[in-house]
Simulated scan of single mutants.
Amino acid sequence: MQHDEKPRSAEEGRLWGRPSAWIVSVLLFVGLTAVGLTAVSSIFGGRIPSFDNRLVQPQTVVAILGFLIVYFLADGLRLYFVLRTIGARIRVHEIFPLVFINILVSNVTPLATGGGFAQVWYLRRHGVAVGASVAATTIRTVLAMLLIFTAAPLIQFLHPNASSEGVARITTQSLSGIILIYLAGFLIVLFRPFWIAALLSRVLGFAARIGLIGRQRCIRWTVAVQRETQEFSASFARFARGSRMFALAAVLATLIFLLTLFAFPALLLEALGQEVDWLKVIGTLSVVTFLMYFAPTPGGAGFAELAFAGFMAAQMEADELLLVVFAWRFLTIYIGMAIGVIVSFFAFRPKALAG
């Protein structure tokens, strides 16, 4: 046991880092969120909204709570079923604290980089091997990306008027082409990983020859690229060979999770008494979510609010835009982060870790 405690302490240090860095990241998230909301108000007009009592009507509260339960439940089950598909054993109730830990950590780290590390770290604490944890979290993320990247051009093709007018519409149509290129690249990585590894190795070799990087670094990065592309392909091979029932359940849970996420704004607009085209809203949010995958800020703060407003402005009154933007982020992100703070405190306190 003593031999195991020291590596774990070092691992904890690498994961959590210095408290000051986390404080700065949280303050950055809050600050950028405020900047984003202020920019929405300035760019798209409309007064600063007061709270609308229609959002707390009994039937609306019941609907929102139902959406939240499905949203968080599907989020946990999609990882659980992926783990079961690749043969990892974990009890279902142990997954759900990870839902909120992931929401918290991924939203206070740039490009959501901390979420993956936190999930692997947590799963290891509950008896899941590191390799299986990395494979499962990667597959869970890629399944969501595949559905999002497939949905956006498909909705654009089947329902061409689903996009907002003006710049947002042009952006949506352009993104459909980018998404298809991205999907093609994914398929190459999945089925011909050595092609990508060979290409990147040549690029790194060229960079080393012209002096952009050192020879030793070139070798390290080349080995890392080959290893990661092979592991990525192997992870999906394990998933494809696993239980079809669990694999189908993972895809279904991912689909339910995304549909709930995309439908939240439609629910809010309907509660505010507007005529809502649910397909139009869901299609628009699939594009907004796609864009958020590339936001460099913690949790997409600032960027998410502006992207949402830019694509949804044509679908609601200007005076209600800021309220809907905040309510959307509050329900899908802020509540989960607040619960994540509490769950993280209990999950990672010394007594829990020792157990």
Rank of each mutant, 00 (worst) to 15 (best):
Y293A: 14
S106M: 07
F44Q: 02
M292L: 15
L158P: 02
V128I: 11
E165A: 15
A338G: 12
L331T: 03
L200M: 14
A198I: 03
A88E: 07
V251C: 05
A197G: 10
V128M: 03
I69K: 06
A327D: 04
Y80T: 09
W278G: 10
P350T: 02
G17Y: 06
V325N: 01
V325S: 02
F29M: 13
V281E: 14
L27I: 04
M316W: 04
P350A: 02
Q216G: 01
A168L: 10
I178P: 00
A307L: 11
S41T: 02
E5N: 11
M245D: 10
V82L: 08
L143Q: 05
R238M: 08
R8D: 10
R124Y: 03
A234C: 08
V189I: 12
C218E: 15
A135C: 07
G66L: 12
A129Q: 14
P296T: 11
F157Q: 06
R18V: 09
S106F: 03
L212E: 00
R215I: 11
V281R: 14
I155F: 09
G300C: 08
F186C: 05
P58R: 13
G76Y: 10
T141A: 08
V142Q: 05
G302Q: 00
L259P: 07
G87T: 04
L37S: 01
V341F: 13
A21D: 11
R169F: 06
E228Q: 08
I179R: 04
G17H: 09
L353R: 13
E228M: 05
F345C: 01
A198W: 07
V92F: 07
A152C: 07
I139K: 08
L267G: 12
A129G: 15
V276L: 11
G115W: 09
L267S: 07
A338Y: 05
S174D: 05
I256R: 11
A39F: 01
T138L: 10
P193H: 07
S41E: 01
R202L: 14
R227V: 00
I210D: 00
I178V: 15
E12P: 00
V343A: 07
R220H: 08
A314S: 15
S106Q: 12
D319A: 00
L268P: 07
L147T: 09
A10H: 09
L252P: 00
G211V: 09
F303H: 10
W328T: 14
A318N: 05
P19Q: 06
A314D: 15
S235Q: 11
V130A: 15
I48L: 07
W328I: 03
W22D: 02
A247R: 10
R238Q: 11
F206R: 13
L212Q: 02
A198D: 14
V35L: 03
V128W: 01
A34W: 05
L147G: 13
L65D: 11
Q2N: 14
Q2R: 15
D52G: 07
F157T: 11
F206C: 06
I213H: 03
P19V: 06
L68A: 08
Y71S: 10
T138S: 08
G302Y: 00
F326V: 15
L37T: 01
M337L: 12
V26G: 00
E165K: 13
L104K: 06
G116S: 09
Q156D: 10
G17S: 09
R209D: 14
